[in-house]
Write a protein that binds this DNA or RNA. Structure first.
Length: 541
DNA sequence: TGATGCTTTT
C-alpha cells in the first residue's frame, strides 16, 4: 500500500525506498513496484526488477505482472521480450485476460507490428473500452486511418461499451486529420461537443490539427483561442499549423505569446518556427531563432533543425553557406537537405554545387526521377545543353529502377470522396470533367495569363504528349469537378499525394481569379490558398 | 494490497 501510495503521488524514489527496506517481499509488492516503473516509462528498472523477481523463485507469474511488464516493453518497443511473454501467456492460458491482451496489442502496434496487434485484438474473447481505444490508437499510429474509422463505427455499434471516451476520440480525430476528412472530422467534433471534452488538451490538440490539415485554418485558430489552459503540445500544434499555411507572422506572434503565457518552447516548437522561416525565405529571422534555440533555451538542434536551416539558407540563395553548414553539422546530410540545395541551385544558377547535390541524391534515392529532372533543368537554365542531354540519357538508362508514384488528388463533395488519378478516365462523369477542363484552359489562357509549361512533366516522352499528360494532372481534374459540383462561394479543397507542380500551381492561381473561387490545395509538404490570382505561399515552396 | 489506452515534428 505504501509503495502504491508513493508511486501514485509521483515519487517513485520513495516507493523504491519502501520496497528496498522490506525484509520480505510478496508477489504483490513486486507487481506494485514494477507497475510503478512501467507507468513512469522507466523500462530499465521495470525489466530489471522483473528479472530479479523471477530469480528469487517461488513467485508465480500472474496476469498482473505480465501486463505491467508488457507496458514497459511498449515504451521500449521491446518486441523480443513481448513475444516471450506472449508465448508464456498462451501456455498458461492468460492470453484471454483483457489486461494481458490489451497490453499485448499495444506493444505490437507501438513496435510497428500492427497486423499482429490486430490478430490479438480479433482473438480476444472479452474486450474492454481500453482494448478498443488501444486498437484505434494503434491503427492511427501506423497510418491505417481508414481502418481506424471502420473500427470506430464497429465499436459504436457494439452495445455495452463506453466508446466515446477521450482516448478513442482523440485517436479518431487524428485519423480524420490523416485523411484530411473534413466532413467526418466535423462529425466527430460534434460528438466532442456532446461529451463535453472540448477543453481537454489531448482532444483540443487533435481537433486543431485536424482542422488545419483539412485546410480550415480559421476553424483551427478559433478552436485554439477558446481553450483556457493550453499546454505545450497545443501551442505546438497551432504553431505548426500556421507554419504549414505560410502564416509566418502569426507563427512569430504565437511564439512570443506562448512564452508570455509561461511556457518554454521545445524542439518541436523550433522545428515549426524554423520551417516557417524557410517557407518564407526569412534568413535573418531563421538565424535568430537558431541562436535563441541553443543559447537561450539550451536545446540541442537535431537533424530536422539542421534540415530547416539548410532550407532557410539555400532558399535565400546562400547555397554556399548552406553547403558549408551541411559539412559542419554533427549529422550526415539527408536527402531533403540535398534536395533543398539542388532546388535552389537551379533557381540561383549554381551548376557546380548542383552537380554535387545531385550526385549525392542519385546515391541516396536512385529511384527518384525528380532529382534527374531538377539537375537537367539547372543545366538548361545555364544553357549548358550537353549537361541536359547527358542527364536525360542517365534518366533513360535508369528507367527500370525509377519509382514514379502516380499522382492522385481527392476532393470531398457532399458525403463522398472523389479520387482522381493522373490521366484518369474511370470517373463516371469524366466526359463532363474533360469538357470543363477544356473550357477552363481556354479561359485561363485568355484572361488569366496561364501558359502551360511542360518543363514540369517528368515523363520522358515527346513534347505534344507531355502537354497532354500535363493537362491531365490529377489536381486539374479535381478542381474541374469541384467547380462543377460545389455551389458558388464554397471553397474547393483538394488534397494531393505528391507535391504540386509548378504548372498546376500557376493554373490554380489563374483559375482562382478567372472563376472568382477560393481554392485550397494540400500537397505532401504544405498548404496553398489560391485567391484572386495569388497563392499564400507567394510562389515560394 | 497489484494491471492495459490519447494529441504535435523537415
Amino acid at each position: 500500500m505504501l509503495i502504491n501510495m508513493y508511486s501514485k503521488c509521483g515519487s517513485e524514489v520513495s516507493a523504491r525506498k519502501v520496497f528496498d527496506r522490506m525484509t520480505e517481499r510478496t508477489l504483490v509488492s513486486y507487481n506494485t513496484i514494477i507497475s510503478a516503473y512501467a507507468q513512469k516509462g522507466d523500462e530499465e528498472n521495470a525489466l530489471f526488477l522483473f528479472v530479479q523477481m523471477r530469480r528469487e523463485g517461488n513467485n508465480p507469474l500472474t496476469e498482473f505482472t505480465v501486463s505491467s511488464v508488457l507496458c514497459a516493453c511498449a515504451s521500449k518497443c521491446d518486441v523480443l521480450t513481448s513475444k516471450q511473454l506472449h508465448c508464456f501467456s498462451i501456455k498458461n492460458s492468460m492470453d484471454e485476460n483483457v489486461f494481458v491482451g490489451t497490453a499485448l496489442l499495444d506493444v505490437y502496434s507501438k513496435s510497428g507490428f500492427v497486423h499482429d496487434a490486430s490478430r490479438v485484438f480479433e482473438g480476444m474473447p472479452e474486450k474492454s473500452d481500453v482494448t478498443w481505444s488501444s486498437m484505434a490508437a494503434g491503427l492511427v499510429q501506423n497510418k491505417l486511418y481508414e481502418e481506424a474509422l471502420v473500427l470506430y463505427t464497429r465499436a459504436r455499434a457494439t452495445t455495452g461499451l463506453e466508446t466515446d471516451n477521450k482516448f478513442t476520440i482523440s485517436s479518431i480525430i487524428s485519423a480524420c486529420a490523416g485523411l484530411a476528412a473534413f466532413i467526418e472530422g466535423r462529425q466527430v467534433h460534434s460528438v466532442v461537443c456532446k461529451t463535453g471534452f472540448e477543453s481537454n488538451n489531448f482532444i483540443a490538440s487533435s481537433l486543431v490539427d485536424m482542422y488545419a490539415k483539412c485546410g480550415a485554418i480559421k476553424d483551427a485558430f478559433r478552436l485554439f483561442q477558446n481553450i483556457q489552459d493550453k499546454n505545450l503540445v497545443l501551442w505546438n500544434v497551432m504553431i505548426s499549423a500556421l507554419a504549414k499555411h505560410s502564416r509566418s507572422l502569426e507563427v512569430m506572434v504565437l511564439f512570443e505569446k506562448m512564452q508570455q503565457a509561461g511556457l518554454e518552447p521545445d524542439e518541436v516548437t523550433y522545428i515549426s518556427v524554423l520551417s516557417a522561416c524557410g517557407h518564407m525565405g526569412l534568413v535573418k529571422e531563421g538565424r535568430t531563432y537558431f541562436y535563441l534555440m541553443t543559447e537561450l533555451h539550451h536545446l540541442s538542434p537535431n537533424v530536422l533543425h539542421y534540415s530547416c536551416m539548410v532550407d532557410v539558407l539555400s532558399r535565400a540563395g546562400l547555397v554556399r553557406e548552406a553547403y558549408e553548414l551541411m559539412k559542419d553539422m554533427p549529422f550526415d546530410p539527408t536527402a531533403p537537405m540535398w534536395g533543398s540545395l539542388l532546388g535552389s541551385c537551379r533557381v540561383h544558377g549554381n551548376v557546380e554545387l548542383a552537380e554535387v547535390a545531385a550526385g549525392n541524391l542519385f546515391e541516396i534515392e536512385p529511384g527518384n526521377a525528380a532529382n534527374y529532372v531538377m539537375l537537367s533543368n539547372t543545366y538548361a537554365a545555364g544553357r549548358q545543353w550537353e549537361g541536359v542531354a547527358s542527364t536525360r540519357k542517365l534518366l533513360k538508362e535508369n528507367d527500370g529502377v525509377m519509382k514514379k508514384e502516380r499522382g492522385k488528388s481527392w476532393v470531398e463533395i457532399k458525403d463522398k470522396v472523389h479520387t482522381f488519378m493522373a490521366g484518369e478516365r474511370k470517373h463516371p462523369r469524366i466526359m463532363e470533367i474533360l469538357l470543363e477542363l477544356d473550357r477552363l484552359m481556354e479561359e485561363t489562357k485568355k484572361r488569366g495569363g496561364y501558359k502551360p509549361d511542360a518543363g514540369y512533366e517528368l515523363h520522358d516522352v515527346e513534347q505534344g504528349k507531355k502537354l497532354e499528360l500535363l493537362k491531365h494532372h490529377s489536381e486539374k481534374l479535381a478542381v474541374c469537378f469541384g467547380l462543377m459540383s460545389l455551389p458558388e462561394g464554397i471553397p474547393i479543397r483538394i488534397m494531393k499525394n505528391l507535391r504540386i507542380c509548378g504548372d498546376c500551381h500557376s493554373f490554380m492561381k489563374s483559375v482562382s481569379s478567372v472563376e472568382g473561387r477560393e481554392i485550397i490545395v494540400r500537397d505532401t509538404n504544405r498548404f496553398h490558398h489560391f485567391w484572386n490570382g495569388h497563392c499564400s505561399c507567394n510562389d515560394f515552396w
